[in-house]
């Protein structure tokens, strides 16, 4: 599947869903969550899949965006748009200053540092009750409006978040195929080799880290306005882990894989609720078996399968891992 075809297909899917199933809970509510998660997973995938930097603290950037929007619009009566930009500026700045010391770390140490960062942010959100409302969260966040077009129904939110997701996917695809995208992938292969080729690895890594943080912050602001309520548990350490799981489950280094992983992991718990007490166990078992049987991720794994079925031997699975799906 070529990239462009994939993008058309995704766009078609986003447009057709509400037409085929109008006013369906799974489309206008769950799919909106899936869209937000997809935005986050795609941004995290830039960092993890392409630059090879594990982050277990991505939810913190999401939380910063969400809380900046929430606090500025409810406590200081800001208009949502400048609040959103303020959130991105704040998050981007923090990410920029964090990037240098954090990205010097490798592997599990990097994972730990990002995880620690995420937890610290979460503790601040819980403890600074005066500003953040503490564990009970902040409510009555106003909704967005585009020149008088109020985003006040679930369907309208579907349109807004669907478009944002497509935009982010499109951006990510273009970034990966640009010059800096190639630099990024070289980084994943081998940092030393990339440096030898004259790539400024520190600048590239910092760039993609800040980029991922900015997108996450945007998603956070959208989330705050869509839910009209934010609380620390929507951006805790478990959510960071969930995001990583989405990226890996879908298939690392594949933008569509990240989207796919986000969709699967958002819908799965919704479907599993009927199992009540068995839900947790079944979810864990599915997660484990997926990774055992499709270690490259569901999306990449299924694509390989498809390829083998259609081309019989002409293409070997995982022939070119750097080829973005």
């Amino acid at each position: 599947m070529s990239q462009r075809k994939g993008f058309y297909l995704l766009t078609l899917l986003v447009v057709l869903l509400p037409l085929l199933f109008p006013d369906n809970y799974f489309v206008t509510v769950v799919a909106v969550s899936a869209g937000l998660n997809a935005i986050l997973a795609v941004s995290l995938n830039l960092l993890m899949g392409y630059a090879g930097q594990i982050s277990l603290g991505h939810a913190a950037f999401f939380g910063m965006g969400a809380y900046t929007s929430a606090i500025l619009t409810t406590k200081f009566a800001w208009n949502p748009w400048p609040a959103m930009v303020a959130g991105m500026i704040l998050t981007g700045t923090i990410a920029f200053f964090m990037a240098r010391p954090v990205l010097k770390l490798k592997g599990h140490y990097l994972a730990m540092a990002t995880l620690g960062f995420g937890i610290i942010i979460n503790i601040i959100l819980v403890q600074a009750v005066g500003l953040t409302g503490g564990p009970d969260g902040l409510g009555e966040i106003p909704t967005l409006s585009f020149f008088g077009w109020q985003v006040d129904t679930d369907l309208r939110w579907y349109i807004v978040i669907g478009s944002c997701m497509l935009l982010v996917v499109w951006l990510a695809l273009n970034l990966i195929n640009s010059r800096s995208g190639r630099a990024l992938r070289a980084l994943h292969g081998s940092e030393v080799a990339a440096e030898m080729m004259g790539i400024d690895t520190t600048a590239t890594k910092t760039g993609v880290f800040v980029m991922a943080a900015l997108i996450a912050s945007l998603a956070g602001s959208l989330f705050a306005h869509q839910q009209s309520f934010v609380s620390p548990d929507s951006c805790d350490f478990f959510f960071s882990i969930e995001l990583v799981t989405m990226v890996v489950l879908g298939g690392m280094a594949s933008t569509y894989g990240a989207v796919f992983g986000a969709i699967v992991l958002t819908f799965l718990p919704e479907l599993l609720v009927v199992f009540e007490d068995f839900e947790v166990m079944i979810f864990g078992a599915i997660l484990m078996s997926m990774m055992i049987f499709l270690p490259q991720g569901m999306f990449v794994g299924m694509q390989n399968l498809l390829q083998r079925l259609t081309h019989r031997r002409s293409a070997l699975p995982g022939e070119d891992p750097n080829e973005p799906a």
């Binding site: 206008t28 969260g137 679930d154 839910q227």
Partner: peptide, 28 residues
């Protein structure tokens, strides 16, 4: 979890079309 509460309340309202709601164990 607050996020779950938002989605499930919407599910109760939109999909299940309940007549009233008794619930919400925690203040959050």
């Amino acid at each position: 979890k607050a996020k779950e509460a938002v989605n499930f309340t919407k599910r109760l309202v939109k999909k299940d079309r309940v007549d009233l709601i008794v619930g919400g164990s925690t203040s959050g």
